[in-house]
Amino acid sequence: MIGQAYHYLLLGAMILLGVLIIVSIIRSVLGPGISDRVIAVNMIGTIIIMLIAILSLYRNESYLVDVCLIYAMISFLSVVVLCKVYTGVYLQRKNMKANLEAVEDNLQHQEEEVIVVEAEGQPEQKEEEAVR
């Protein structure tokens, strides 16, 4: 009796989480803007972790909880990298520059003046660029 109750409870929970995943996928396609899509992808990751944890209980297989932990780490890393890369791409396309201190953090300390090749008629900019 209790076994049946657990079975139906966990099955219902998994079906509900599956529906939520589909809704989040639709949001990740629709969302007008990059942040909405990243939010949706993050939420899909969270819901999948819950789903795998419930599945490990449903199937009585204890090694699936390791998968939960790994997936949590990977989804966190993916959100961090996505945000960095998209911000960089946006700022680059707007021809803005980050703070010079931050720039020199990643490049070596060899300053040269380089003239940016004019791509679209923007004014010539002088950049402090480090060269390996």
């Binding site: 911000t87 680059q92 980050a98 953090d105 990643n106 060269v131």
Partner: peptide
């Protein structure tokens, strides 16, 4: 490759370097 005095490669390297614009720290 590590860039020497050659200006074309330096220009190309600078254009490939899109990490300049990322938020850091």
């Amino acid at each position: 490759d590590p860039v020497d005095e050659h200006s074309r490669a330096r220009v190309r390297k600078q254009q490939e370097n899109d990490r300049v614009f990322e938020p850091k720290n």
